[in-house]
Amino acid sequence: MTPVEPITGPRVRHPLEERPACPASQPIVEVDRLSLYYGGKPAFQDVTLSINKGCITALVGPSGCGKTSFLTCLNRLTDLIAGCRVSGRITIDALDVLAPGINVIQLRRRIGMIFQKPNPFPLTIRRNLEFPLREHGLRGREQIARIIETTLRDVGLWDEVKDRLDSPALALSGGQQQRLCIARALALLPEVLLMDEPCSALDPLSSGVVEDLIVGLRERYTVLIVTHNLAQARRIADYAALFWVQNGAGRLIETGAAKQIFEEPRDPLTAAYVSGMRG
């Protein structure tokens, strides 16, 4: 029914040491003592974290410790959840995210988000990409066509779908759908990409393709990725942050360079988690 995705063969990974370094640490997102409550119950509390530009930061930890909730604060999707209260401070490139008067639409344009389950709209492949662009004021037909091609090439989907751009997006395979969603986010030229376990709903093969794609985004985009898959975090992340539930609320336990977190963790909880003894 759907063509088989190109098989990349046994993938060879850079060990941590050989990976190209991300640009010199230059924070783009600063989170200061952020807490989030659902109807008075804390999801996570007192998270202070800075995210470096052009790097991949992995948020790891057991389920239910507030990692996904943390992501949704950054693009204010929390606004859509009734009874949700956020306190603290987030700045992205000097923009105060939680300030009441900011233009949320603009903010969400600058911060793309990829969800766990691929969620293309029930439209054609082309319309999926074109529609948000038009909404953000892009009108030129040729310009839009060019952006569609570029972003689809960026996510390695172009050769697979260029002949059927007008067929329904939901007819694509799971991995293709997820890459389409990434393309849809990239088309808006975001500065930061939030990814909420983007590979966990995919089969191993598609998961590998998407993972390679994420690695390819380094330097051009700042990526924040939530993952349960420690091996994956180890493979792709420059920085890592470990969340854990303490006293009924999620907390940030340790943060730092991925190499340090995974090889010389300072906190005993981190050590237990990365060695697979807990969580």
Binding site: D79, A82, P100, N103, I105
Partner: peptide, 13 residues
């Protein structure tokens, strides 16, 4: 599921 009050959309006429 969404609450009107919490959503700041004043810039979107």
């Amino acid at each position: 599921m969404t609450s009107l009050r919490s959503n700041t959309l004043s810039r979107w006429p």
